[in-house]
């Protein structure tokens, strides 16, 4: 079982020093949780759908895709696979230290791997 409040707590922990948003969603772009500065629920939904599309497109080109970083005009988004079926993304200000952003992404994904694996495993 996955608790929404607990998940939001965990995701929120990385939102410091330049990081201002974190998402957990599946490969279909369905959002499980978002914490961050985008106020509108719709916007975080749309971002999740877009990121999932980008991931699927990249995956078609590169086998065994692990992680991807998008550098945008004013921000950077790093995202990675968690528990084989989910995607975790963090968004940071463009001046934020990229090493730090990736470190946060990885420690978050390691933390979530086991719990999510256990529930998504049950599904198959």
């Amino acid at each position: 079982m996955l608790k929404q409040k607990a998940l939001i707590d965990v995701l929120g922990q990385v939102n410091t020093s330049g990081v201002d948003g974190s998402w957990l969603f599946n490969k279909d772009g369905l959002l499980l949780a978002y914490v961050g500065s985008e106020q509108k629920e719709v916007a975080s939904n749309v971002s999740a759908a877009l990121l999932a599309s980008v991931w699927t497109a990249l995956e078609r080109r590169a086998c065994d895709l692990r992680e991807s970083i998008l550098v945008l005009e004013d921000s950077t988004i790093a995202f990675t696979l968690v528990a084989r079926t989910m995607l975790l993304a963090v968004k940071a200000h463009k001046n934020a230290d990229l090493g730090m952003v990736r470190a946060k992404l990885h420690s978050l994904s390691t933390y979530l791997e086991q719990p999510i694996l256990s529930i998504s495993h049950d599904l198959i």
Binding site: M1, L31, L32, A33, I119, D122
Partner: peptide, 17 residues
């Protein structure tokens, strides 16, 4: 009103067994 639907669906699938 904003609870994530996929999250609930996943939990429902789990409870089903």
């Amino acid at each position: 009103g904003k609870v994530s639907a996929p999250m609930i669906t996943m939990n429902v699938k789990n409870a089903r067994k």
